[in-house]
Design a protein around this nucleic acid. Sequence first.
RNA 1: GCCCGCUUGGCGGAAUUGGUAGACGCAAGGGACUUAAAAUCCCUCGCCCUCACGGGCGUGCCGGUUCGAUCCCGGCAGCGGGCACCA
Length: 862
Amino acid sequence: MSRYNVRENEAKWQSAWADRNSFAVSADPARPKYFVLEMFPYPSGRIHMGHVRNYTIGDVIARYKRAKGFNVLHPMGWDAFGLPAENAALERKVHPGKWTYENIATMRGQLQSMGLAIDWNREIATCRPEYYRHEQKMFLDFLKAGLAYRKESWVNWDPVDNTVLANEQVVDGRGWRTGALVEKRKLSQWFLKITHFADDLLSALATLDRWPEKVRIMQENWIGKSTGLRFRFQLTAPEGISTEPEVEVFTTRPDTLFGASFVGISPNHPIALALAEKNPAVAEFIADCNRVGTSEEAIETAEKKGFDTGITAEHPFVPGWTLPVYIANFVLMEYGTGAIFGCPAHDQRDLDFARKYGLKVTPVVVPEGEDPATFDVGTEAYTGPGLLRNSQFLDGMDVEAAKQAAGERIEAMGRGQRTTIFRLRDWGVSRQRYWGCPIPVIHCPSCGLVHVPEDQLPVTLPDDVTFDQPGNPLDRHPTWKHVACPTCGTAAVRETDTFDTFIESSWYFLRFASPRVEGQAFNREEAAYWLPVDQYIGGIEHAVLHLLYARFWTRALSHVGYTDLKEPFEGLFTQGMVTHATYQDAEGKWLLPSDVDVVDGKSVQREGGGPVTVGPIIKMSKSKKNVVDPAHIIDTYGADAARLFMLSDSPPDRDLEWTEAGIDGAWRFINRLWRLVTEPSVTLPPAGTSIPAELSPLATDARRMVHKTVAAIGEDLERFRFNKAVARIRELSNALEKLDGKAGADAGDAAVLREGLEVLVRLIGPMMPHLAEELWSVLGHDTLLVDSVWPVADEALATEDTATVAVQVNGKLRATLHLPKDIAKEEAEALALAEPNVQRALEGKPVRKVIVVPNRVINVVV
RNA sequence: GCCCGCUUGGCGGAAUUGGUAGACGCAAGGGACUUAAAAUCCCUCGCCCUCACGGGCGUGCCGGUUCGAUCCCGGCAGCGGGCACCA
């Protein structure tokens, strides 16, 4: 019994593909194209299991589509700018560029060891000036077209490090490195007008029918279109306080206006800021609110707090009815007008707030079946449908009619108008960091903002930077930032902020169409051929930001004339995470899975046998040390086993638990396939031998299985049901093993076995390409499997002529019958009723009704 | 807090999306081969009653629609993910 030599074979076939440039492609309008793209990796150092899963899935699709005759573009690149490189610079005193390029070299080797069908000639790295120069040009074009602008915006500020923090660097309101309380600060930053396309980004979601429903819903919610009413309250300030005469609020519930009990303004509302200048208590309250953090989660989960300004607002419909004006920590300056009116009975946040400050709670919408006289909301706001009460001219209307009536009245009064607003905010793209794409503008004391002239692009990063001081190295660089103004020649400074790294990933798919073209971001014709991406594959964590930004960027590029592309990604698949159990020693220190052994069913430390606590199965992460290094796995079991494991058992959109037993199982199956093909018990007839007309029953069954499997696996792969495809491969190999065990006497059996093995090998090609290639050659082919076509199922051979029909009495299974396909209903009914077990279940009771579902079920109702 | 998802044997999962629940695999138990082990092969394997034939129960929980519900509807619980400077 032989064993498959993984190392030798995987290396052999990888060189064979590389030598023949098997996966290099070029645009060919005569052939149908298929663009498979996995989200490109951040070069963090080594590949992790998430990458293995992502790229295995993409590779199966790429190889399958290739075998189906498509001209398949399957490229790879590196999302190479980003924060981790700067952290590495800080911690290990290594230049971010050097660190990044070394990581790329390592990870390229690791990905290549997976045997991916990738056109490596198209590899790109976004940190190279040849790449990012084009996005500098795009940005300037957006600027000219009015799609980019500058405004003040809030950031998380670490007062010790003097640096801006990402949300993830803020832990419990403190800087992750310094532990200092984080402040909100205002900085002048660059924004891209994604809101210009808000409506289109929303409505076009309906055209993305090959996207997961949940991703579309997430984007829909993110864009958050809502229709409502924008109107002004008149303000009265008490003695000694001056304020604006009016405040404009936005509401989606104008119907509840008669239930209003306060007006809330954002802590960063101009009125609040003006008050703060005169009143230290207001300033203190605002500072307090600003310590909460910038994320919506932080703001919404924080305790509702308000500051009574003493100012009052007059109700628009009831002269003399005044509402207190609070500065409220849950009112967002970025949304609507930064001011609201609170109707506690019908909004949970308003209710929490009102209960805390003892404000009146008046229900004005009463659900059907409730008595308006006694209806009360308690601690839970009522947000459902109902009829208006306590609301003067709105009384008796339903919610929708009341919204309209209130809106019309406000408009007639000239105090406001009905509008549509979006939750979506413009995209802030300025980052106060070094390792990113420089923003190509210059600040001139006399000319103001000046674009870097196109012939001076790219603006490249200086190499001589240090990370020994806090803040952005570009900002304190002795020479780089100082330039002569391109317009007037006086001393000016460069913009020292760099772009958000989501920009690079917003157009890399276009660059892949013509990755080496100079002077333009991409060749228009080649992009028109390859784009859109037919199948995009990546993690669900990118459901909103990356995917929305890429959709926006594509529209913006179309807007300024780069392309006619509407949507970048026609099909999207989001895969689940790779998880693993966690381990801790007696002191609570995390342990690597490779440091843990199982002895007599108990987990112990490999070194010394110390006790191990087995923790929950969670996403592999460095911090919890529950990681398994793919390089080690590939080294031990081979790429095919790792790939097979990734595809087996768990559906690809769900989480996958990595286990030692699982990879062992994959390895065993690979050897089983190896033996099945290399050591048949009979001499196989030569390839292409025709199948005799007369076959043994076993061979007939096996042959039907072969053709059924071909049809089913094609369907499974199209629908991303890799786990089912693997199960079918196993079933087919079980059937062929059985045939082989019996074969020998009959030439028909051997011919069917040869046909089956040939099909089997072609079917495993996308999943286990090295093994498949080797077995293809063992079967006597001198061509490469990657160059052969996908098998075609013979429908006539794949269909059964009998059906297994369940016979139920009152819905309970009492017998199964093997009936000829499409037998007459009456006949089937008679046979079913004749079954002894059915008769016993009937107990002589009269049959009321018989339901016959052809080829499926017969249900006798008594 | 808001939004989204998930829940089926000891475990991962399957069930042609309203028609035989548990395909395929993992683990476990028993057996064969072997001096022995590994590898490999064969058998059993949702729970309960029964020597068996067979029967009862069973898809997180409660209820509904239906001849028939893992699937559809209403309610509840648990777990997980996202929330604008991580990518």
